[in-house]
Design a protein around this nucleic acid. Structure first.
Length: 722
DNA sequence: CTAGGGTTAG
């Protein structure tokens, strides 16, 4: 065999390279040189594109540079474009754009494929500004703007970046629309939630004789899912089922996601059945959609059984089950699955972190939270803003509000969620003025506060009794931001006014607000009645609450406590009977404290801890000492009608006191104690803890189910309003 | 030799 023509070699090489078999392609590449045939630009480009498509950019750019160094021909537009499309399709859009600008700087003229790919990269990154620049470049340099490929990519860009009107103008300007143009515009309307426009355009398309394909339907379904509109997503799923179009796995995932949104368990199960009947292999995509669907419909057991059945568990499947646990308050489960994932050699990614941080926050699992923070730093993840925000939340909820602030200050580009989370953190710690100051800071930034900002800010004012500030920002919301207060903000204001004892004003606000009062509103009022000892109003509020959330024990307990405090023992007993009648049970008070990497939990009246004698001795000596400096046990918080001495004993057994006593004997003096309680902190314990903090010169940080209490030098950060 | 649309987890 003599010299083969370079074209024949190229066909072999490009064939293998485009199939991803780079080894074969390289063998032929070497082979042709041995045979004395010089590779040409097409040969080099085939290899570059093969590596680039596989996401092996180091190899791709090595050949790119070798081509420049070893040959007479420079990389041409195809070589550059191969690098750009490869990066874009492998989730490295940012690098794709870097390559693109490098190419422009070297004065290589892009073609329509290059431009479309660069615009797609902008779309992936939501870089509207950048995309517009590329658009402008097209207009300035040549007629590429009218190229169908480019035009379609621009419709996607403008639709995705929330300027659907601009997308429509671009769409209208396309003379010969293809199916992809229609799909782009329809998906854009779906993502933006424009129901009418979607239907209109859809009908227009059909009247012109253009038939939707599976991607049209999928774009509509997933678009509406992204918009949170499961009803429309299912509408289009049903419509598709009436046609001859066969659903694929993406359709099924989309339909399952919609089921989860609207909690349509019945349809979800039908689709699951369909998957089994048709023997569609349970791909990781459909598998994770099933997990999410069952979890969204509150069937965690089934979510777990789908998880167990899946033979191929990729990072998305693990993330699905982790976030399912986290969303159902199963923090321990979430952390267990995280461990399972690591053991199975699946690398956690950004989404894993974002899902698992709230679980740590809720568990106050500071140690795991810190480990995850370390892990993020070690792995050198791109710090997605959601991770930063998760860290703020985690540190805030674990009681390290200063650390939370340090994270906040460290974020290069904060979004509104960062500010909202930080404001909420200050609020739950009772640092109302810090929350207000941060809000003022936010006002001077270019970000716009949203409804959550005001909810968190007003809640912070309320936790700190900042009445004037509360009114001011409540009014500012309307006057300066043209935002109508929602029921959440009204609830905060009712809470703020009632806590301060301004019951008339708060009742007036309830009357005047354009919503039916909900449990949060009446609950605020009831809580305030405890502080100000107002059993009459408490009865009124509790009446509504018993209707709205009949099984929540907290309301009954609160009302019973209020009756007891007013000496109305008979009424208090009646409430306990009512609870029994309705089968409402009060979860036992439980407190946790972490000492030397171990979490110790104490249940009310608990005698099971190994150090029970030491704890009880410590408690006795503490109580007699704090009584000397002014503590008076408040037996109103004992529900049972016991004798005075017995009531005092029963108070000593409260879980938060046990945890404090244990913390004091098992940590060196001066160490702050961090305690978490599952219920609202008891009034007597609150009083006692203030004295204990003074006596022992310890900082005691206690989180109950509503907020943080920082006890130091005999006072609490809540100012006794909680 | 480069080639545009729908993709599960937050």
């Amino acid at each position: 065999m003599e010299l083969k023509d370079v074209v024949v070699w190229n066909i072999m090489i490009s064939g293998y390279a485009s199939k991803g078999d780079l080894n074969r392609a390289l063998n032929y590449f070497k082979g042709m040189k041995l045979a004395g045939v010089q590779p040409d630009r097409v040969t080099w480009n085939s290899i570059i594109s093969g590596y680039s498509q596989k996401g092996k950019f180091e190899e791709a750019s090595n050949f790119f540079f070798k081509m420049r160094a070893l040959t007479d021909f420079k990389p041409n537009v195809v070589s550059w474009t191969a690098l750009i499309t490869g990066n874009e399709q492998n989730g490295c859009s940012y690098r794709a754009l870097q390559v693109f600008s490098q190419m422009i700087m070297e004065r290589v003229k892009p073609n329509s494929i290059t431009i479309a790919s660069a615009v797609s990269a902008c779309t992936n990154l939501s870089l509207l500004r950048h995309g517009k620049e590329i658009h402008a470049y097209c207009i300035k340099t040549d007629a590429l703007v009218s190229d169908l490929l480019v035009a379609n990519s621009l419709v996607y860009l403008y639709a995705k970046c929330r300027t659907v009107e601009v997308a429509r103008r671009k769409f209208n300007s396309i003379k010969q629309k293809d199916l992809i143009s229609w799909n782009a515009m329809l998906a854009g309307y779906a993502q933006k939630g424009c129901r009418e426009e979607t239907f209109e355009l859809f009908n227009e398309m059909k009247s012109l004789g253009v038939e939707p394909d599976v991607i049209t339907w999928n774009g509509l379904i997933t678009g509406y899912n992204q918009n949170g509109d499961g009803i429309m997503a299912l509408e289009f799923f049903y419509r598709m089922c009436e046609t001859n179009t066969k659903p694929n796995t993406i359709t099924l995932s989309g339909a399952l996601a919609a089921c989860s949104l609207v909690k349509d368990l019945k349809l979800g199960k039908e689709i699951h059945g369909f998957v089994i009947r048709k023997q569609i292999e349970l791909s990781t995509g459909v598998g994770s959609a099933l997990i999410t669907m069952y979890s969204g419909c509150d069937h965690m057991e089934w979510a777990c059984s789908v998880f167990n059945v899946l033979s191929n568990k990729d990072v998305v499947v693990w993330n699905s089950i982790i976030s399912a646990c986290a969303q159902h308050g199963q923090g321990v489960g979430a952390l267990n699955f995280l461990r399972g994932m690591v053991i199975s050699d699946i690398e956690p990614n950004m989404v894993t972190i974002v899902s698992v941080l709230p679980a740590c926050a809720r568990l106050t699992a500071l140690r795991q939270g810190k480990e995850i923070h370390q892990f993020i730093i070690r792995r050198g993840f791109d710090m997605h803003i959601a991770i930063w925000n998760g860290l703020i939340d985690m540190y805030g909820r674990c009681g390290l509000i200063k650390k939370a602030r340090r994270v906040f200050d460290f974020i290069p580009e904060r979004d509104i969620v960062s500010w909202n989370t930080m404001i909420a953190g200050y609020g739950m710690h009772g640092f109302g003025m810090d929350a207000v100051n941060l809000f003022l800071h936010l006002r001077s930034s270019e970000l716009k506060p949203n409804h959550f900002t005001f909810t968190n800010l007003l809640a912070a004012c309320s936790h700190s009794g900042l009445i004037d500030e509360g009114w001011k920002y409540f009014e500012m919301m309307k006057s300066e931001y043209a935002m109508y207060p929602a029921i959440e903000q009204y609830a905060c204001m009712v809470d703020l006014l009632a806590r301060a004892g301004h019951f008339d004003e708060s009742l007036e606000l309830i009357k005047e607000m354009p919503f039916e009062p909900n449990a949060a509103v009446w609950g605020s009022l009831l809580g305030a009645c405890r502080i100000h000892c107002n059993p009459e109003l408490a009865e009124h509020a509790a009446g509504y609450l018993f209707e709205l959330e009949p099984m929540y024990s907290g309301n009954y307990i609160l009302l019973a406590n209020i009756y007891s405090a007013a000496g109305r023992w008979g009424d208090a007993a009646m409430i306990r009977c009512l609870m029994k009648e309705r089968g409402v049970t009060k979860p036992p008070g439980c407190s946790w404290i972490e000492v030397k990497r171990r979490v110790h939990s104490f249940i009310v009246g608990d005698t099971s801890h190994p150090l029970v004698h030491e704890i009880s001795a410590k408690m006795d000596s503490l109580l007699s000492k704090i009584k000397e400096i002014g503590y008076v046990p408040d037996t109103n918080f004992v529900l049972q009608n016991l004798k005075e001495g017995e009531k005092e004993d029963s108070l000593c057994g409260h879980s938060e006191k046990l945890a404090i006593a244990f913390g004091l004997i098992s940590t060196p003096s001066g160490t702050p104690l961090r305690i978490i309680k599952n219920l609202r902190v008891c009034g007597d314990c609150h009083e006692a803890t203030k004295f204990i903090s003074k006596l022992t010169e310890r900082e005691i940080i206690m989180r109950d189910c509503y907020r943080f209490h920082h006890f130091a030098e005999g006072v609490c950060s809540c100012g006794d309003y909680w």
